[in-house]
């Protein structure tokens, strides 16, 4: 059984031989390839009369991308969690008789933010400049994957926050204090979701 490399090679050879795309599609369907496989294989080559066939750009994977994006998203994750913790403990202190534990949590959270916030800011601005300078970097598969993982985590957090709010409402625990803490979670998770959803749209081909 032929693999996808052979399919790609066949499509290239057929285009070089001057076969039309409908003819190539017909031959491949007859051989048992699915429409999506054929579409993907033909889509790898630009629709232009130029010969030899011109390849479309493909996604790239590099160790450098992994390092930069894993660091950026790791810092974002840790920073966002601690931002929520600090803000929620501050809300608790407004409503409750605060304790030594609350002070310790703020102290640790602020320490994390002092390290992660400038690092995230620097990494993100640096990457934005690089992307503006060389749009080919938008084709980084690692960037895409990690961005979608960040979107998934942000969406899951928003859903969890909504579920917790409804549950608190039903159990009668929905106080002003709870509402303020739920709003903090939704603002942080929602902001991250919107930020990266917009970033992905900017990187998509027209």
């Amino acid at each position: 059984m032929a693999n996808r490399d052979e399919l790609s090679l066949f499509v290239r050879d057929a285009l070089v031989a001057g076969k039309s795309r409908p003819d190539i599609t017909g031959a491949l369907i007859e051989a048992g390839w699915s429409e999506s496989e054929i579409r993907e294989a033909l889509g790898a080559w630009a629709e232009t009369p130029f010969t030899p066939p011109v390849p479309r750009p493909v996604q790239t994977v590099s160790a450098r991308d992994f390092f930069i994006y894993a660091l950026t998203f790791g810092v974002l994750l840790i920073g966002a969690i601690n931002l929520v913790i600090v803000l929620q403990v501050l809300v608790d202190m407004l409503f409750e008789d605060d304790s030594y534990v609350a002070i310790e949590r703020i102290r640790f959270g602020v320490s994390v933010l002092i390290v992660t916030a400038p690092l995230y800011l620097w990494l993100t601005l640096r990457e934005r400049r690089k992307l503006a300078h060389d749009p080919a970097l938008y084709r980084s598969a690692i960037r895409k994957w990690l961005t979608y993982i960040a979107l998934l985590l942000a969406a899951a957090t928003l859903l969890g926050d909504l579920i917790a709010t409804i549950y608190a409402l039903l159990t009668g625990d929905f106080t002003l204090q709870f509402m303020a803490k739920a709003v903090i979670v939704s603002l942080v998770a929602g902001g991250i979701f919107l930020f990266y959803a917009n970033a992905m749209r900017q990187g998509e081909p027209e």
Partner: peptide
């Protein structure tokens, strides 16, 4: 849009750090 979100996040983080430090005090106070 993203620029506004980014600036907003920076302000929220600066607020959290500032108020947090004000609440917990400095090293001598700790």
């Amino acid at each position: 849009m993203n620029r506004l979100l980014f600036i907003g996040f920076c302000l929220v983080v600066a607020f959290a750090i500032g108020v947090g430090l004000w609440v917990v005090g400095g090293p001598e106070y700790a």
